[in-house]
Design a binder for these strands. Structure first.
Lengths: 345, 345
DNA sequence: TATGAATGCGCAATCGGTTGTGCAACTATT
DNA sequence: AATAGTTGCACAACCGATTGCGCATTCATA
């Protein structure tokens, strides 16, 4: 380790030290030296020198000159559930594997914050912008296309950029089927099944509601409007909605389709506060959380296949789809629906 | 909205359009126009033009020239628990409030990934690097100081940069006290209390163990070495460690100090699998998760005060402490230890 | 011993902002 | 009317990389 450089080392400094030129040093350090016919000997000397002196490329200068930042941007609603946090982690890991730098920003499901974050990412000239669970993906996609950079949607689809999402309808159908199967096994009337959580205006919730409906329809079960309560995601909202439902109906639902782990939090809290036994009610959750699974092993969960979703995303980053309205659905996996489920484990 | 610009708009384009000069346009757009005595009229004209044409400053160019990126970097072990995810979220929110851009990278508690992420952040010339829960904070601090940029530690302290951490020892003492109080209330022998989870080589775990010991000592309770099992954080490790403990002791511990929510996951799973009743055992967890709290309201949790920790961090970003080895401890809050706790709620 | 090709490297322009400095034109002062 | 001060803006030199181009050498071939 050499002594503290008072100023950051540049290729000009290295060129002087190596008695060479900045262009040569640059070529050596960015790996294009063979193409520029720099001798292996000189290359090695410069590389050693750079290593010894602790040189680090100024990415701003590189980005400016190359007109490519080497950065991938992602906006995300939140980090604080397993679904979104694993999206961030797997996205980062995959980008790192490819030597790409990532910037992730969470925007709290707030359209203004989404736009502002996108504006910043565009100012930093990210090469792609991944728009995850955005309230208004098309607005972001438009900003991106105006800036001439590609955008992709994840989790919630848009019409202005390609989207990778979960197979929400089919997933919801399967989750509902699992609930109905358990009711049948316990010979419980399937009339009182409640769908709770999510936003009526978001695509995923609408699809899941549709899947829920279809699964019931196929068994000739009617679904009342009051059985479907997209009361937003927040735990408190779900708590209040369940309270209201029980107030109206006079008793607990026999089964519940809970639309997210954050809604589940409210549901569970409400049940606990009321002194209800979790096992008296059959629950499914369209999302996955290992702690919840540990606490309540009879809870059925849909685990969205984040690895596959991210893999498809990178496929599109590598080779952009010709059709910008392309939509790809990835099937989630059902967890906790073992055959032994009806009995006590 | 004007027609699609084929090339990204620059201050030179704007200068031409406004029949002005690049330096004037620059001054107007970065807010220094008053100091440079640009007339209000011209400034307005240029601002309107920039707005109309959808101009966006090239941050790479700005950063290069200013020699300041305007970026704050943070490395983080993971996103997938509430503690770290709220650190990321609150950090971002606070930075956004100040108009600072952030880059967060998670490094999976892997020293190599930590160094690599730090190297990248330094290459992008972040202005500060926050090192959260790093396995080797001093190594990162050294890299930073060699590059001439300030670093700060969060969650796990180092000796080469100022650190903001939780009051682990005192927090652990209080959590242990809560466990012992409950044992007393139930008139249960306090011999069989198990500390489980974490890494013996990390500072926080050592401090918590010390707090655990002290709380027992103050009640004249001896602590056997086998009562303390820092088996790493992973759920599987905790699961195996508990299994081993029970195998040795012939029965369950009466109470447990679980060192993280991820360890808690393994503990709860193991208890469930064995058909044990969660309420037969008094549990505390040094960390907080609202889903866990909802599922198990008698679980006592220490919620680390992330908001305060981040606030202190930004204090130091604003005015760096004179002493680089400075360490600040922020008291965590105990959750779920209400007076009504011993009875059924 | 010419001639042409290949090898090895440096020159200088460039990316898009920022900022020290200078120079008109205008206003106030004596 | 001459001088000094103020106002309003443009010039041009950077920041640190990248890259098209060109010029010496050296090597192979005739």
């Amino acid at each position: 380790m050499s002594s503290e450089p008072s100023r950051k080392l540049t290729i000009y400094d290295l060129a002087k030290l190596a008695k060479s030129s900045p262009s040569t040093v640059s070529a050596v350090l960015n790996g294009t030296w063979q193409r520029r016919r720099i001798s292996r000997k000189l290359a090695r000397r410069i590389l050693d020198l750079a290593e010894r002196e602790g040189y680090s490329t100024n990415m701003q200068a590189r980005a400016l000159r190359r007109d490519r930042s080497g950065i991938l941007g992602m906006i995300l609603p939140l980090y604080d559930n397993r679904y979104f946090s694993s999206i961030a982690q797997i996205f980062e890991a995959e980008a790192r594997r490819r030597g790409i730098f990532t910037i992730v920003s969470c925007t709290n499901r707030d359209p203004d914050q989404e736009r502002e974050a996108a504006r910043m990412m565009l100012a930093y000239r990210v090469e792609h912008l991944i728009c995850t669970g955005a309230t208004n993906p098309d607005a972001i996609a438009e900003m991106c296309s105006a800036a001439g950079i590609a955008s992709l949607n994840l989790d919630l689809p848009g019409t202005a950029a390609p989207s990778v999402i979960s197979a929400n309808r089919e997933g919801a159908r399967r989750l509902t089927d699992a609930l109905l199967d358990r009711l049948e096994a316990r010979k419980i009337d399937a009339a009182r099944v409640l769908f709770i959580g999510g936003r009526a205006e978001d695509h995923n919730t609408r699809e899941r509601i549709e899947g829920f409906r279809q699964a019931r329809e196929r068994r000739d079960l009617a679904t009342k409007p009051t059985d479907i309560v997209p009361c937003d995601y927040a735990a408190e909202k779900a708590q209040a909605a369940l309270e209201a439902y029980v107030g109206r109906e006079g008793r607990l639902p026999a089964a519940m389709f809970v639309n997210s782990t954050i809604s589940l939090e409210g549901i569970v809290r409400w049940l606990r506060l009321g002194g209800h036994d979790m096992n008296d009610i059959i629950m499914g959750c369209f999302d996955w959380d290992p702690l919840a699974a540990a606490f309540h092993p009879r809870l059925i969960m849909m685990r969205q296949d984040v690895s596959t979703m991210i893999a498809r995303l990178f496929d599109w980053i590598d080779t952009p789809p010709e059709d910008p309205t392309m939509r790809l659905e990835v099937m989630p996996e059902i967890i906790g629906n073992s055959a032994a489920a009806p009995g006590r484990g």
